[in-house]
Design a protein around this nucleic acid. Structure first.
Length: 478
RNA sequence: CGGGGUGUGGCGCAGUUGGUAGCGCGCGACGUUUGGGACGUCGAUGCCGCAGGUUCGAAUCCUGUCACUCCGACCA
């Protein structure tokens, strides 16, 4: 039925993916821009998504023995400079505080871009013996990186994240921790966010400043571009040496502990938007949706409709669902569009006819499938429907990734694919950074990671033809 | 840091050769509506980003400046 458009539609994703993205971010009321470039206001709906993400992950961190702490937001310049690679990596993008009140500071302070140095300073104070290890700390906070080009969630000047920093007695333990946390992130993405990810190791060129090894999970967005969704770093004892963190070992000898850090940021919300969203708006995976079921009363002025709707809301809330009843006097059609825009996984319609029949209508956000459900069975039906939405989203995302994953044996082949489309390109690599740089300059792709699950596409490097060491996923990234 | 764009009610925009600001949506009240973004009537909301300049007169012309935004190079 042709309706007069009361609100201009969002830009179609095929027409302009970037504009589509910002339209959604604004119209789904996730963020507002603030007066500082790149600093966004996380509005209640956006923040509620982040809170759900925090709650789930925080539980997992605690289940695996981690404790939360809070570190200062300022780092004195001298502290930041202790580890050479680290400061080289971050110095270009830190914000500096040079005045305290009206006094010029003796030493300028940087606003933390990440907190390795702060944790190290503290660890030097509290680690004395192998009995003090491991230290498994995490903090939820925001950090600041002075980015040139900013986009809500994807690249902010200030963004919210979680950073875990751990210290271990042995290298082995630290490596295991790095893997454990990467797995937690990967499971979280796949089982809660319905985003399939590829686990792998970053090349030296792409690894974290100061790390010995960086592992990442890479997701593919709807447009075929890659988004690094979380990282986990193994530091060896490099920072420990730089910060003079030592402990007395079981053999009564002084030793350096082995360190890790790992993080996931509000950027993951950008991944959710770009993985699941469609031309009607946001689509949220049920596990983190602030509202899982929205109840829309039909002909709500009629006797008994609102009462029944409120009764259902209370019943479902009590049963543990995140549910909202919209009894505003907007028309049902308006409400349908509104909650589709906001990505609510399930819509429950209840009107006079339904009440008469002891039923309601459930509509899935992912595919708009409609089901009539008897009110007696609603509580048992909802989890199934939510799971179905989750599965539908995961499958669709996986299909998209499969469709847009290519393999290349030669440079020409790779370049042609990269020129023509976005996607993951699987190709072999000799391990030489020169080849990596050439692929970036001439084909416009960067190495995403070297997947743990390797396939031997050929025995030669896609770039130079020398013997290949690893299969690498190449692509354009956010 | 380079290149583009935009700053006018809450939002989106229009504003001619300079003449003292308008439209749509939203918002408030009332009434009619209500299974895919309803309609009518009435109403409220403006230092035209900021600072200079030209002019009898500037949203409009000039200079400067600030901010946001998009595209590149750098990055979670």
């Amino acid at each position: 039925m042709a309706q007069k458009k009361m609100v201009e539609a969002i830009t179609s994703m095929n027409e302009d993916f970037t504009k589509w993205y910002t339209d959604i971010v604004k119209k789904a009321e996730l963020v507002d821009y603030s007066s500082v470039k790149g600093c966004m206001v996380l509005r209640p709906y956006g923040y509620a998504i982040w809170e759900n993400i925090q709650r789930i992950l925080d539980n997992q961190f605690k289940e695996t023995g981690h404790e939360n702490v809070a570190m200062p937001m300022f780092i004195p310049e001298s502290l930041l400079q202790k580890e050479k690679d680290h400061v080289e990596g971050f110095a270009p993008e830190v914000a500096w505080v040079t005045y305290g009140g009206s006094e010029k500071l003796q030493e300028r302070l940087c606003v933390r871009p990440t907190s390795e140095t702060l944790f190290c300073e503290h660890y030097a104070h509290v680690i004395n013996s192998y009995r003090d290890l491991p230290k498994l700390y995490n903090q939820w906070c925001s950090v600041v990186r002075w980015e040139k080009n900013t986009r809500p969630f994807l690249r902010n000047t200030e963004f919210w994240w979680q950073e875990g920093h751990t210290m271990h007695e042995t290298a082995q333990e630290a490596v295991e921790e790095t893997e454990r946390m990467l797995n937690i992130y990967a499971d979280f993405c796949e089982k809660q966010l319905a985003i399939p990810v590829i686990k792998g190791k970053k090349t030296d060129k792409e690894k974290f400043a100061g790390a010995e090894a960086t592992y990442s999970i890479e997701a593919m967005m709807h447009d075929g571009k890659a988004l690094q969704s979380a990282t986990s770093h193994y530091f060896g004892d490099g920072f420990a040496r730089a910060f003079d963190i030592t402990f007395t070992g079981r053999d009564n000898k002084l030793a350096y502990p082995h360190q890790t850090s790992w993080g996931i940021s509000t950027r993951i919300i950008g991944a959710i938007i770009m993985t699941h969203g469609d031309d009607n708006g946001l689509v949220l995976p049920p596990a983190i949706a602030p509202v899982q079921v929205v109840i829309i009363p039909i002909a709500q002025h009629k006797e008994g409709v609102l009462e029944k709707a409120a009764e259902l809301r209370d019943q479902l809330k009590k049963a543990g669902f995140r549910v909202k009843l919209d009894d505003s006097d907007n028309t049902p059609g308006w409400k349908f569009a509104e909650y589709e825009m906001k990505g609510v996984p399930l819509r429950l319609e209840i009107g006079p006819k339904d009440i008469e029949n002891g039923q309601c209508v459930l509509v899935r956000r992912d595919n708009r499938e409609k089901a009539f459900v008897s009110l007696d069975q609603l509580e048992s039906e909802l989890p199934k429907q939510l799971q179905a939405v989750h599965n539908g989203l995961y499958q669709r995302a996986l299909n998209n990734r499969t469709e847009k994953t290519y393999t290349a044996q030669t440079f020409e082949e790779l370049k042609q694919i990269a020129d023509e489309k976005n996607g993951f390109i699987e190709a072999m690599w000799c391990g030489d950074v020169a080849c990596e740089e050439k692929l970036k300059e001439e084909a416009g792709v960067t190495s995403r990671n070297m997947p743990f699950e390797q396939r031997e596409i050929s025995d030669k490097c896609v770039c130079c033809g020398k013997p290949a060491k690893k299969m690498v996923i190449w692509g354009k990234a956010y």
